[in-house]
């Protein structure tokens, strides 16, 4: 028994999913299905591609054309899918490690090319599937199984990274701020170019236990209290800005899209050959 949304867009025989109690990946996955539903996209014209990791399990539960690929390489496969079938809406589901460490170069070059792919990053600040190793988004000072005395690295800001690399739409919301998340995913899918929507997610099992963050509810409250919209951060008094993370839309511009440019090139060369 399930809602109409789950019935329509999920492979119910695969549910319940394997994610841990309180893992917010399910919230983000549902938000993607909700965004697709609200846009009224044809299910058979949507392709969802993922790499490896907890987040990358998501397409297995979703009833679209789905592709579960190798670690970090979802965007490479997605680029092939999009160039072969430009009419498809291609969505990549990836995690913080998959997107910014193992697949970091695929990410910046897909952004640079501005290919019409929407990438949703489930950012839980840790490698959950392999046991809690620190990732490129683990905050400085936080604990991981490979950082038992605290992480000394500085974290990546994936949304800003994609924006700087050439993405034409970049935004961040959280698993708590679900309505905004759905809105940003919709705008990302509608954008004709490379879009990246980062969803701050929670990992109670590894990140939470290692860092004594408390229950899933406590971790959701942290998302609620710690993220401030980029539009209002300047209006806050200095003492309230301390330690806050930014959410909201960082980039929303129009630029030539890679698949369209590629087809134009083919047309031009064919014309010249005649």
């Amino acid at each position: 028994m399930s809602s109409n949304l789950i019935n329509e867009y999920f492979r119910e025989s695969k549910l319940p999913h394997i994610w841990c109690p309180g893992c917010s990946h399910g919230i983000v996955t549902r938000a993607i299905a909700k965004a697709i539903d609200e846009l009224g996209l044809d299910k058979d014209k949507v392709t969802i591609v993922s790499g490896i990791g907890c987040s990358s399990r998501a397409p297995g539960y979703m009833d679209f054309n789905t592709l579960h690929t190798t670690h970090g390489r979802a965007l490479a496969f997605a680029t092939g899918v999009k160039l072969a079938n430009p009419e498809l809406d291609v969505i990549v589901i990836t995690g913080d490690g998959d997107a910014s460490a193992i697949g970091g170069n695929h990410l910046i070059h897909a952004a640079r090319r501005n290919i019409d792919i929407t990438t949703i990053v489930f950012n839980n600040n840790i490698y959950g599937m392999t046991g809690g190793q620190y990732s490129p988004t683990t905050p400085t000072g936080a604990l991981g199984t490979t950082a038992p005395h605290g992480n000394i690295d500085k974290p990546f800001d994936i949304a800003q990274l994609a924006a700087a690399a050439g993405a034409t739409y970049a935004a961040r919301s959280t698993a708590y701020h679900t309505t905004q998340l759905i809105k940003y995913i919709k705008k990302g899918i509608q954008n004709k170019g490379f879009s990246l929507v980062e969803a701050a997610s929670i990992c109670p099992t590894y990140y939470g236990r290692k860092n004594k963050s408390g229950s899933p509810v406590k971790m959701m409250e942290h998302l609620k209290n710690n993220f401030v919209d980029v539009k209002i951060i300047d209006k806050l008094p200095e003492e309230k800005k301390a330690g806050k993370e930014l959410m909201g839309e960082f980039k929303d511009i129009t630029a030539p899209e890679y698949t369209a440019e590629y087809l134009k090139l083919i047309d031009r060369l064919k014309g010249a050959a005649k």
């Binding site: 109409n4 949304l5 319940p16 893992c23 917010s24 990946h25 399910g26 549902r30 708590y176």
Partner: peptide, 17 residues
């Protein structure tokens, strides 16, 4: 509740559904 349930276990459905 439906928006934030990670397990799709609660939702608003139609009465005749």
């Amino acid at each position: 509740c439906e928006l934030r349930c990670p397990d799709f276990a609660i939702w608003l459905g139609g009465k005749d559904n």
